[in-house]
């Protein structure tokens, strides 16, 4: 069955203490090209039937209402996963 992937990130202007903690561990690994880490969420919604425009629209609505809280997070992507 097709899968729609929703990605949610903490708002850019907010502190991401979990991401900062991981960034600290990255720094302790020694030399890497990375200067920051932010942690978000990925949801995989299994679709009953076609991943058509209606399903994508329903996924967007779910992403805005339940999967994210617009006060603290942004929905950054809603798309059909590659088979």
């Amino acid at each position: 069955m097709p899968v729609i992937v929703v990605e949610v990130m903490p708002k850019a202007e907010l502190l991401d203490p979990a991401g900062k903690a991981v960034a600290g561990a990255v720094a302790r690994l020694g030399s890497t090209p990375f200067t920051g880490v932010r942690i978000g969420k990925r949801f995989e919604l299994t679709v009953d039937g076609e991943a058509d425009a209606a399903a994508l629209s329903a996924a967007r609505e779910l992403a805005e209402s339940l999967l994210s809280n617009s006060v603290i997070e942004d929905v950054v992507s809603v798309k059909v996963a590659a088979e």
């Binding site: 903490p10 907010l14 502190l15 203490p17 979990a18 900062k20 903690a21 809280n69 006060v71 603290i72």
Partner: peptide, 16 residues
């Protein structure tokens, strides 16, 4: 807050 009875949101403590 999540039920929108009160406004705003609560996030992880800034010091982690």
């Amino acid at each position: 807050v999540e039920a929108h009875v009160l406004p705003g949101g609560l996030v992880r403590n800034d010091h982690g």
